[in-house]
Design a protein around this nucleic acid. Structure first.
Length: 383
DNA sequence: AAACCGTGGCA
DNA sequence: TTGCCAAGGTT
């Protein structure tokens, strides 16, 4: 990590009553800190798993996945030996699937390079895939009480308000890192870092922060300027592009369905899906599906009636999946633009990891197979 | 170094 | 309905 020395010089950090801030935060945490599953023990594997799951993901979402994960992969050695498909299955629905692939890969690295013992050197931890500076600090401080600072979304927001930062946090990362490091209570780094995140998650929230209960309110520049709701400043973004996709549910004459496994890199890497592709301008859904299936799988299908229409939003675009029943006519399916192709029954399909939008298709297939009446287009957000 | 990478909840 | 944001890292 390279510090931007110039910007540190030009943007001076305010004078802060550091000792008092540490003491007030410590006392608040003792009274109001959260009790969370990964705070009950200091096993680095348990802390590590929680830190990866919590990247860009809220505590409430993580907890059930965390419990289930530990029942399947109770220790690092078990995870290292596990099949990647089982790992992805346990991650199904959490999103950012590279986190699961990297966790699995890193477990193997710890076994081979560190004798199965999670490393305690910052450089060794940072060398593991999926662990950056903030996650390394979170793990080392929580598991070993090491004085390593953190800078996650909570801390960025808390510190931005504390100094009334006049630019979006992304434009001031060196200063925010320096502030996190300056404030860090080196006598109690574990509790300090956890307290800072709790403060951001429960009081110093993005909307309607509970400033009247905040232990830092007398020192908080944003509060004293009544600018809590304007800080941190946001970057302006472009509207999300919308893609229209034709998707095939291909049946053979043995009541089996054709699914494919995506390439390991990129969007939804390593997960299974129903094949399909983008509808070209002026193209009908049926023509698109027939064309995509010929191009991607090298087979010919007859496109039948609509099964479901799924709306789904990813981070950088929205999609409409136009899903149609298809009948396999001829040709042996080939893995041309994917890793693997497979015929499965509706009974077997649950064993494979699918992304969210595809699980909605599977639900619709179940209803179809059970002879339930097809309803109006089902919207993702209504489910 | 800007772009990419999921999903759920909320207003 | 749409946009925003969340315990960020990788390329």
């Amino acid at each position: 990590m390279k510090e931007n020395a110039r910007s540190i010089e030009t943007v001076a950090l305010p004078e802060l009553p550091v000792t008092q801030l540490r003491r007030d935060l410590r006392q608040w945490y003792a009274e109001s800190g959260r009790r969370l599953p990964w705070r009950e023990r200091d096993d680095p594997y348990l802390i590590w798993v929680s830190e990866i799951m919590l990247q860009q993901t809220q505590v409430k979402t993580v907890i059930p996945y965390y419990q289930n994960w530990l029942s399947r992969f109770p220790d690092l050695a078990t995870l290292a030996k596990a099949d990647l498909q089982d790992v992805l299955k346990a991650w199904q629905g959490l999103g950012y699937y590279a986190r699961a692939r990297n966790l699995h890969k890193a477990a193997g690295a710890v076994v081979r390079q560190h004798g199965g013992i999670f490393p305690q050197q910052l450089d060794d931890v940072l060398a593991l895939p999926g662990i950056g500076r903030s996650t390394a600090g979170g793990i080392l401080s929580a598991a070993f009480n090491q004085p390593v600072s953190i800078l996650d979304g909570n801390v960025k927001r808390v510190l931005s308000r504390l100094i009334a930062l006049s630019v979006p946090p992304a434009k001031a990362l060196p200063q925010l890192w320096q502030l996190s490091d300056t404030l860090l209570d080196r006598e109690n780094p574990r509790d300090f870092n956890q307290a800072l995140m709790d403060l951001g998650a429960t009081l110093c929230t993005p909307k309607n922060p509970g400033c009247l209960l905040c232990p830092w309110r007398t020192s908080c520049k944003a509060y004293n300027l009544e600018k809590q709701s304007e800080i941190p400043m946001r970057e302006t973004r472009f509207p999300l592009p919308h893609k229209h996709i034709g998707v095939a549910v291909i049946w053979n004459d043995r009541q089996q369905l054709l699914i494919d496994r995506r390439l390991d890199s990129g969007l939804l890497g390593g997960l299974w899906e129903f094949p399909g592709g983008k509808i070209e301008p002026g193209e009908t859904i049926e023509a698109c599906i027939a064309r995509e299936i010929q191009e991607e799988l090298g087979i010919e299908v007859e496109v039948g009636e609509r099964l479901i229409t799924v709306e789904h939003a990813y981070t950088h675009f929205r999609v409409t999946l136009n899903v149609h029943h298809c009948r396999h006519l001829h040709g042996e399916p080939q893995a041309i633009e994917c890793q693997e192709v497979r015929w499965v029954t509706l009974e077997e399909i649950d064993r494979f990891p699918f992304p969210k939008a595809n699980t909605l298709i599977i639900e619709a297939l179940r209803e179809f197979a059970n002879g339930e009446p097809t309803s109006a287009p089902i919207r993702n957000e209504l489910r």
